[in-house]
């Protein structure tokens, strides 16, 4: 664990915490972007260039913009008077703690099961491309169909709204 990792981890966690704790919704979205960027840098720190840049392109370039648009185009984008915290925060805290405990347990277990000194794999973009087109062609196609369905669904929802106005 190098110093770079700790800096990036701190950045990511700070961004994620700010996204939850800040009052202004747009600030939350921007803080979430910082968390996304931190994750992308963590990927790059692990030498996973493709995953890192894809993370930046998809999450910072598209998802963050989508979140921001959704906030601005919906009516209740102003901060509510009684704060942004739900009344059932105690239950939420319990669920979050349970998920965190389970994930940490799984990760800690894997450390003892796997041999410690694994050589770092060197994966080039070419190999990723070949794997996607070769071995994982079917999952890729299924994801493509799923995305197309989502796209058509979004268009139909938008069209229906337009007819309602007329």
């Amino acid at each position: 664990m190098s110093l770079v990792f700790y800096i990036l981890a701190a950045l990511t966690i700070a961004g994620a915490l700010a996204a939850v704790l800040l009052k202004n919704t747009v600030h939350c979205a921007l803080a979430l972007t910082v968390a996304f960027a931190g994750l992308a840098f963590l990927f790059l720190n692990l030498d996973a260039q493709f995953a890192g840049f894809a993370q930046i392109m998809v999450y910072i370039g598209a998802v963050a913009i989508l979140v921001v648009f959704a906030i601005l185009l919906t009516k209740n984008s102003e901060t509510p008077k009684d704060g942004v915290f739900s009344h059932t925060w105690l239950v939420g805290l319990l669920v979050a703690a349970a998920v965190f405990a389970m994930l940490s347990w799984a990760i800690l277990q894997s450390v003892s099961r796997l041999p410690q000194a694994m050589p770092a794999p060197t994966v080039t973009v070419l190999q990723i491309g070949e794997a996607l087109i070769g071995r994982y062609a079917l999952p890729l196609e299924i994801v493509a169909v799923l995305l197309t369905v989502a796209l058509i669904g979004a268009v139909i929802v938008a069209m229906h709204e337009k007819e309602g106005i007329q």
Partner: peptide, 20 residues
């Protein structure tokens, strides 16, 4: 970089947020 083009477009995508 092995992924130079991807890096370039990733950086280009992050300018949009600053405009917003």
């Amino acid at each position: 970089m092995d992924t130079g083009l991807l890096f370039y477009f990733a950086m280009g995508a992050s300018t949009e947020l600053s405009v917003f």
